[in-house]
């Protein structure tokens, strides 16, 4: 049988959203999502919770997580699944992300149409090699990310001159998340 979704769809979505809002407001701060979700592999609880919290029939989702995960998302979130990254509001990526030029970055007049990349990584914790600055950050936040796809940060940085167009990233690992909105400047080392 299909794996269950949120135990309490109303309050679990609320606490999930507050974690995502906090993550997006304070880029690089790691937020814990409530545990308890058992999505099909390779989806981890945080990735699944973020999508259940935000995706629905109005938001096309691109997923590279395989059939079981796609069926689970379709059933619990009711979201259309699309094959083309350009058509997606949310991209659920567990492997190598599609080329960032293929993703919808919005327009100068409607930059809010830029997609959100929900990127599953191996591990996340505060402190570490990535130095983040920008809105939401008092001086500098440090973030440690394991399993970030090669070249991803450089490709993301190449989008910065397009601001306010851009793509926002929610990094997920286990039950933890951290966000990199398009305004966040990331330096390595």
């Amino acid at each position: 049988m299909m794996q269950p979704g949120f135990h309490d769809p109303v309050l679990d979505a609320q606490s999930g959203f507050r974690a995502v809002l906090e993550a997006m407001s304070r880029p690089g701060r790691v937020q814990a999502l409530p545990p308890g979700l058992t999505p099909p592999a390779p989806l981890q609880p945080a990735t699944a919770a973020v999508l259940l919290t935000l995706a629905d029939a109005e938001t096309p989702v691109f997923s590279d997580a395989g059939t079981a995960a796609a069926e689970w998302l379709r059933f619990h979130a009711g979201c259309p699944l699309v094959a083309s990254p350009a058509a997606a509001t949310f991209l659920c990526v567990t492997g190598t992300p599609p080329a960032l030029e293929e993703i919808d970055l919005g327009t100068d007049e409607a930059p809010q149409d830029g997609a959100t990349l929900v990127l599953q990584v191996a591990a996340l914790r505060e402190g570490g090699a990535l130095r983040l600055s920008g809105p939401g950050i008092e001086r500098e936040h440090r973030l440690h990310v394991e399993g970030l796809p090669e070249g991803f940060l450089a490709a993301r940085a190449a989008l910065a001159p397009l601001y306010p167009r851009g793509m926002d990233v929610i990094l997920c690992a286990g039950t933890r998340i951290a966000a990199l909105p398009r305004t966040t400047h990331v330096m390595e080392g």
Partner: peptide, 12 residues
């Protein structure tokens, strides 16, 4: 509304 809020935060 939540999706709008997240984009609002991402584009101050």
């Amino acid at each position: 509304i939540r999706r709008a809020l997240l984009k609002a935060v991402a584009i101050p």
